[in-house]
Design a protein around this nucleic acid. Structure first.
Lengths: 343, 343
DNA sequence: CTGTTAGCGCGTTCAC
DNA sequence: GTGAACGCGCTAACAG
């Protein structure tokens, strides 16, 4: 049985209050008694019980992060950003992974209780109105990252613009047969719909350039490289295949590259490939992509959250949106289309 | 202010004891009163306070995971394995990231207190004897994953064997000029020394084949692709460069590949490259590597931990080692050496 | 400056 | 079957 604050008090010949004071280094403790207490602490190898401390003080020194598929490179990178600000502040991280709709709903239901953490970060999952309402009146501040609700503070990017930038890049290179593949837009998961917004940007770019949208150039399936690979095969089997494919994420772009390789379609000579996110592998694969500040999103989200934790009333008076910039990273998977339109 | 158990009791016209009973569905509660209580709970939208419950019951329904550089693909993959067993059991995950020696020591000091979780998983960090002693008598069970101490239960692989397998593969292909690059073996971090053990396997394989070890073929630096890239350039600048490079991890192998590309050295025709781990990108890059069951290590570690949580005395009577199998995954970065020894 | 005491919210005896 | 009281370990407010 570990020693308690009482054991320490007894051994040091003082009251528990005094021990508590030295623990939280209160100024008003005589130097000599402080030393006595510290000796007792050392002798008993005493550490205050975190749970008891939390219950009594109301503070937990934890922050909660809800992350769907936290193993995805993008989530991991965001988490890493969060982590860097947590260490500074001596906070720990409680991770709530979400892989099913059920789990998602459950968390949105119970988390606002917020008794395990002093603040909550929600990645990529956009709450509906009811949920947002709960979150808004949660016991602790909440910040959305890569997710959206008008009533909640958030750190986001402009996905429409991103989709537009990607498509525009391909158009500028001379492409007109441009496909878009993505995960399922109408996800039962109620994601922020990043893919859906990128799709809008794609459509807008085509429209502005006077390129007609072709339904057969627009495919969706579960997120993942293998699925993207399959979709690419379908695209390249078309009577008139696209000369460029814009994938809604780098992970999916990887699938595209693999399919191209399997068919001996040269990238970028015969096929241009664009990704989105700029995860680490994108660089290894020389993938042209839209860079979004993943790491930074974690940092900014966490910092905003701490601002609210330290200043709870700000939360009631503002809904802040931090918009992170996007950047086209041109590497070696995009080029002008083959001069002679093949077939 | 959220409702407490007392509010519920009052509203239902019962004592707090009864409310507690229905919460933990104790059998001895009359059906009619149970219903009354449940109504009150619903009406007040009551959720028991997790912290209070933890303090009073001594159970937390959390498990702690210490992971150095949890952003590394290998840690992430292990975490994913852990996660799958946690969801089944309704446990949450508290993540302790470690990026510095200081943080490492601090955690080994305070974590054995174990008041925030019911069990602790330690990834990749091997405790010294003192720390192991603390861990062994911690308030909660501890299991090591990819780390070693004779007094602690663990899930591991045979890194020496792995290094041997990798090197042997290259030798069997006909290579004799085989380099080994790794992160720093004498890490102040006190890692398990996986790289050091793989190095031993490398030496053994060379020795058995009667190939003399060349110090200039053995380089080390901080972990990371860029560092590996630089080391590769040094190797390839040697008067007699190696025909094969075995990198201690896939991440480092990626650096090797990039350097080769930069120098227009064809892989595998002019240079064979072996990795270790078989992380996801290895497949994308067609990297020949040693597969270690990362995901499985998380699953097994978590399951072993739960066995101890449910059966605490087992822990005192056994030190269990789960040894996970290794597998050579031959892809396309290894081949026989160029027939004419260049230069 | 410091000891004492009242909670924090809930689980758990123990009598009724 | 159920209510009341105590305790988990600590912080904070209040005397002294």
């Amino acid at each position: 049985m570990p020693a308690t604050i009482r054991d320490v008090a007894k051994r040091a010949g003082v009251g528990v209050g005094t021990v508590s004071r030295v623990l939280n280094n209160h100024p008003s403790v005589r130097e000599s008694t402080r030393r006595r207490v510290e000796e007792a602490i050392a002798a008993l190898n005493y550490r205050p019980n975190t749970i008891a401390r939390q219950l009594s003080s109301g503070k937990t020194a934890n922050i909660g992060v809800v992350a769907p598929f936290f193993i995805r490179p993008s989530s991991v990178e965001r988490l890493r950003g969060v982590e860097t600000v947590l260490v500074e502040r001596q906070y720990d991280l409680i991770l709530y992974n979400v892989e099913t709709k059920k789990k998602r709903d459950e968390l949105f239901q119970t988390l606002p209780r917020g008794d395990m953490f002093d603040g909550l970060l929600v990645f990529t999952l956009s709450p509906n109105d009811d949920e947002a309402e709960r979150l808004r009146h949660a016991a602790v501040p909440v910040v959305l990252v890569d997710a959206f609700h008008p009533a909640l503070s958030r750190v986001v990017i402009d996905d429409i613009e991103g989709g537009y930038m990607a498509t525009k890049h391909l158009i500028d290179l001379g492409h007109t047969r441009i496909a878009y593949i993505s995960d399922i837009l109408e996800s039962p998961f109620e994601f922020v719909g990043a893919s859906a917004q990128r799709y809008q940007g794609y459509r807008r770019a085509l429209h502005e350039a006077g390129i007609e949208f072709r339904p057969e150039y627009y495919l969706q399936d579960q997120h993942g490289a293998p699925q993207a690979q399959a979709m690419t095969h379908r695209l390249l089997s078309l009577a008139e295949p696209p000369t460029a494919i814009f994938a809604a994420s780098d992970t999916q772009a990887i699938g595209v590259l693999r399919a191209a390789k399997e068919r001996n379609v040269a990238v970028p000579e015969q096929l241009s490939v664009m990704g989105f996110d700029d995860i680490e592998v994108a660089e290894y694969l020389n993938l042209t992509t839209i860079h979004q500040p993943l790491f930074t999103s974690g940092v900014e989200g966490a910092e905003l959250l701490f601002r609210y934790i330290e200043n709870p009333d700000e939360l009631r008076h503002e809904v802040k949106e931090v918009l992170l910039p996007l950047r086209l990273i041109q590497r070696q998977t995009t080029a002008p289309p083959p001069s002679h339109t093949t077939r």
